Amino acid sequence: MNLVPLLVNLGGTALAVAVTMGLTMAYALRTRTHSIVDVVWGLGFVVIAATSFVLSGVQGEGVTGRRVLVLALTALWGLRLGTYIFRRNHGKGEDPRYAALLRRNKGPVLPFVLRYIYFSQGWIMWLVSLPVQVAMYQNVSLGVLTWIGAALFAVGFLFESVGDWQLSRFKADPANQGKVMDRGLWGWTRHPNYFGDSVVWWSLFLIACSHWTGLLTVIAPAFMTHLLLNRSGKALLERQMSRRRGPEYTTYLQHTSGFFPRPPKKSPTT
């Protein structure tokens, strides 16, 4: 692997993220709906993958098969996620999370949202995408790790997409109003979508590990998993659900795995 072309790519993708988040912020300020950034989250990774694909091709770096595979997998994940969140949020106005965040602001809106929403999500997006970027520049043939990673991607993608589909169907039924979703994959893990998301990024890391340089990007899936478990994912959602659903959700917590799928327990944990 040639370091200089990769460094050029890292700068190019950083610029692409800055433009993407800047345009998103401009739209959000005009419409006063900052939750649009959740839709752009998945699409931003597609922008990074496409930018890396084009730059690596122009520079004559990487193996075409791996470049196409990584672009296709990232686009599949990002486009599905962006479409799902757009449909879920369409017509509902501002997300309560962002409304609560904005209430903390005591000064001008622009620097506040730039710091706490768009810059913070933009640099995380760029960091998590490192396996995708590095894989585009690896000049080694597709090997066993590449195909194991692709198979692992399929597992994660199915967990995430099927989990989201099951939840959307559950919420669409008025008879389930106020109830806790504990069916299908949600009976095996409290967060099939977060588990699947984590697996997707570990799978892309594994593909990047076809060359030793991929090992240097382990911070990406590790940090993403940390966010899903301890920050904006599992921990935050479970605090909110415990307040809203009370005893029913407490029972669900006792019977169902917090992250890694397993059959539901027949009796509460002690």
Rank of each mutant, 00 (worst) to 15 (best):
C209K: 05
A235T: 10
L110E: 04
L10D: 02
A172T: 05
Q121R: 06
P108C: 09
L204V: 03
S129V: 02
R245N: 00
L158H: 12
Y252A: 06
R104W: 00
R243A: 15
I207D: 04
A50Y: 00
L145K: 05
V109Y: 05
T217R: 00
F112W: 14
T31C: 09
F259C: 10
A50D: 01
L76H: 08
V218R: 07
S210W: 00
E238V: 04
P192W: 01
R231N: 10
A14Y: 11
M181F: 00
V162I: 13
L228T: 07
G12Q: 08
V37E: 05
F86E: 01
D164N: 08
C209R: 03
V19M: 03
L102V: 06
P192K: 09
L81T: 02
S257P: 07
V70Y: 11
M224F: 06
G143T: 10
T250S: 11
L55K: 09
G196M: 12
S120M: 07
K171C: 03
M25R: 15
H90Y: 03
T51V: 02
M224K: 08
H226R: 01
V39T: 14
Y194Q: 12
A222T: 07
A100C: 07
R88N: 08
Q59N: 08
N139L: 11
R104K: 14
L71W: 08
S35C: 08
V46D: 04
L76E: 07
A99I: 02
N193M: 11
T20W: 06
D173P: 06
G163P: 03
W188F: 15
A18I: 02
M224T: 06
R115G: 07
T217V: 09
G42L: 13
K234C: 04
V19G: 10
T251G: 08
H255T: 14
A150L: 13
L10P: 01
L43H: 08
T51Q: 05
H34V: 05
L43F: 06
L79A: 12
V144W: 15
V144E: 13
T64D: 08
